[in-house]
Design a binder for these strands. Structure first.
Length: 114
DNA sequence: ACTCTGACTCCTT
DNA sequence: GAAGGAGCCAGAG
């Protein structure tokens, strides 16, 4: 498995996340078939080509917290985008019990290609 | 080869 | 809660 392939898996998994729902870095890595590689998921987001228009803002830290420093401009941007999705964000926190993505089998079928 | 660093997590204070 | 430490993996210097 090359690194490029791992990034691709993460990106494709991220594309499945529907509007109004979120995933944590760890969950995204797990779903992409890369258990325990939350940091790789974070890196994948940073390296994601803009033209791909991935919903990077639907990825949050474990426990439902926005994982961007409050001092960074990206913090406010992510909150806006999430609220635009209809997701409630209170003081940088999101209720996972309500918004965490629960993928169905169909959404993960693409993985069988590997 | 080695040290640093990070859009991460988990566990302990 | 906040803070610190330890795994963690990859890229950068």
């Amino acid at each position: 498995m090359t690194q490029a392939a791992n990034l691709e898996r993460i990106w494709r998994t991220l594309e499945q996340v529907p509007k109004g729902q979120v995933v944590t870095y760890g969950q995204l890595a797990d779903l992409a078939g890369l258990p325990g590689r939350a940091r790789l998921a974070a890196r994948a987001l940073r390296l994601a080509p803009a033209e791909r228009a991935l919903p990077w803002f639907r990825v949050i830290g474990a426990g439902g917290r926005i994982s961007i420093p409050k001092t960074s401009p990206g913090y406010q941007r992510q909150m806006e985008l999430l609220r635009n999705d209809g997701v409630e964000v209170n003081n940088g926190r999101i209720k996972l019990s309500e918004y965490q993505w629960q993928p169905d089998l169909a959404a993960l079928m693409w993985q069988l290609e590997f």
